[in-house]
Design a protein around this nucleic acid. Structure first.
Lengths: 230, 230
DNA sequence: AATAATAATTGATATATATCAATACATATA
DNA sequence: TATATGTATTGATATATATCAATTATTATT
C-alpha cells in the first residue's frame, strides 16, 4: 500500500452522489482532508474494532465489507465499488468499525476524515438527508440479508448472490468472479464445499456457465425463480 | 382500538430522548400533529408494506417489530417499549414500512406525522444527529441479529433472547413472558417446538425457572456463557 | 522449472434442527 | 358449564447442510 494523489473531488467521476448537495467550499473542505491509497487484492483497508476515523470512497476496484464472526467465520455484507460511501454505523454510536473492509481486486481508495463528514452533516441539512437515505438503504439491505439467511435454503441464497454479483456489482451477465468459493460462501451463508456442489449443479442444469474464473448467468429467469422460491 | 388524548409531549415522561434537542416551538409542532390510540394484545399498529405516514412512540405497553417473511414465517426484530422512536428505514427510501408492528400487551401509542419529523430533521441539525444515532444503533442491532442467526446454534440464540428480554426489555430477572413459544421462536430463529424443548432443558439444568407465564433467570452467568459460546 | 502454498473438488459421514402427528392444556366464547 | 379455539408439549422421523478427509488444480515463490 502506497500513497497516491490524483484528481480533486470536484472533477472526480466517481464521487458519491450525495456530494452534489455540497457547496464548492464544502467539497473543497473534503478535498483538503482527503488522501488516497492503493491496495492489492486481499489487503485490509480497515479492520473491525478499529476507530472510525475515516470515511472511505473507492475510486477504482472492488472490495468486500465483512463481519468477522465467531471462530473465523465471516459474513460478507456486500461487495462495494466506486461512488459509494463506506462509513459504518459505528461512526454515530461508538466510533468503532463493526465490520472490516478488504480489497478483492487492485483498489484505490480515498480516506476522508470522519469529523469533516460529521461537520458537513451538521452544517448542511440536504447532505444530512442524503447520508440518512444512504444508511437507511443499507439498513434495508441488511434486513434482506437477515431474511435470506434465516428463511431461504442454500439454492435460493446462492441464486440471489449470483444475481446480485452479476447485475448489481459487476453489471455483466458474464463476470470475472474475483471471489473465492470460500468468499462466495461467506456472501451467501454456506460452506465453500456447498458452494462448489451447488455451482456445479446450476452449471449442469445450464442455469449458469462456469468457465475459468468466469461465471455467466445463462438462464436468468430460472435463477430468479430459484432465488424467490428457495 | 379507540382514540384517546392525554398529556402533551412537553410533560410526557416517556418521550424520545432526542426530543430534548427540539425547541419548545418544535416540540409543540410535534404535539399538534400527534394523535394517540390504544391497542389490545395482538392488534397490528402498522403493517409491512403500508406507507410510512407516521412515526410511532409507545406511551405504555410492549409491542413487537417483525418482518413478515416467506410462507408465514416471521422474524421478530425487537420488542419495543415506551420512549423509543419507531420509524422504519423505509421512511427515507421508499416511504414503505419494511416490517410490521403489533401490540403484545395492552398498548397506547402516539402517531406523529412523518413529514413533521422529516421537517425537524431538516431544520434542526442536532435533532438530525440524534435521528442518525438512533438508526445507526438499530443497524448495529440488526448486524448482531444476522450474526446470531447465521453463526450461533439454538442454545446460544435462546440464551441471548432470554437475556435480552429479562435485562433490556422487561428489566426484571423474573418477568412475565408475554410472548408465545411461537413468538420466542421468531425472536430467536427456531421453531416453537425447539423453543419448548430448550426452555425445558434450561429449566431442568436450573439455569432458568418456568412458572406459569413467568420466566426467571436463575443462573445468569451460565446463561451468558451459553450465549457467547453457543 | 521446481517447490510450496492456496484454492477447488469430491465423497462419506455426522448433526443440528425442522417437520409431522398426536395429545394435553389453557383460554375464550356460546 | 360446555364447546371451541388457540397454545403448549412430547415423541418419532426426515432433511438440509456442515464437517471431515483425501485428492486434484491453480497460483505464487524460490
Amino acid at each position: 500500500m502506497f500513497k497516491e494523489s490524483t484528481t480533486s473531488c470536484k472533477d472526480c467521476n466517481c464521487k458519491w452522489p450525495n456530494f452534489e448537495n455540497l457547496t464548492d467550499d464544502q467539497l473543497a473542505l473534503i478535498d483538503s482532508s482527503r488522501y488516497q491509497a492503493r491496495f492489492k487484492p486481499g489487503e485490509i483497508i480497515f479492520k473491525q474494532g478499529s476507530p472510525t476515523s475515516n470515511a472511505i470512497f473507492l475510486t477504482s476496484g472492488f472490495a468486500k465489507i465483512y463481519i468477522e464472526g465467531y471462530d473465523n467465520k465471516n459474513i460478507i455484507l456486500s461487495i462495494v465499488k466506486p461512488s459509494h460511501l463506506i462509513a459504518g454505523p459505528g461512526s454515530y454510536v461508538d466510533n468503532r468499525h463493526h465490520y472490516s473492509l478488504a480489497a478483492i481486486t487492485e483498489t484505490t481508495a480515498c480516506f476522508v476524515d470522519m469529523s469533516v463528514i460529521k461537520k458537513l452533516v451538521h452544517d448542511n441539512s440536504s447532505f444530512a438527508e442524503g447520508y440518512l437515505k444512504d444508511i437507511s438503504k443499507k439498513s434495508l439491505n441488511t434486513f434482506n440479508k437477515l431474511l435470506s439467511f434465516s428463511q431461504k435454503k442454500m439454492h435460493g441464497r446462492l441464486a440471489e448472490g449470483l444475481i446480485h454479483l452479476a447485475f448489481d456489482v459487476f453489471e455483466e451477465k458474464k463476470f470475472k468472479c474475483y471471489l473465492t468459493r470460500q468468499e462466495l460462501g461467506e456472501l451467501t451463508g454456506m460452506t465453500k464445499e456447498s458452494v462448489v456442489r451447488l455451482l456445479k449443479e446450476f452449471h449442469d442444469e445450464q442455469i449458469i456457465k462456469l468457465e475459468d474464473s468466469y461465471i455467466e448467468i445463462v438462464d436468468r429467469v430460472k435463477l430468479e425463480k430459484i432465488m424467490v422460491s428457495g
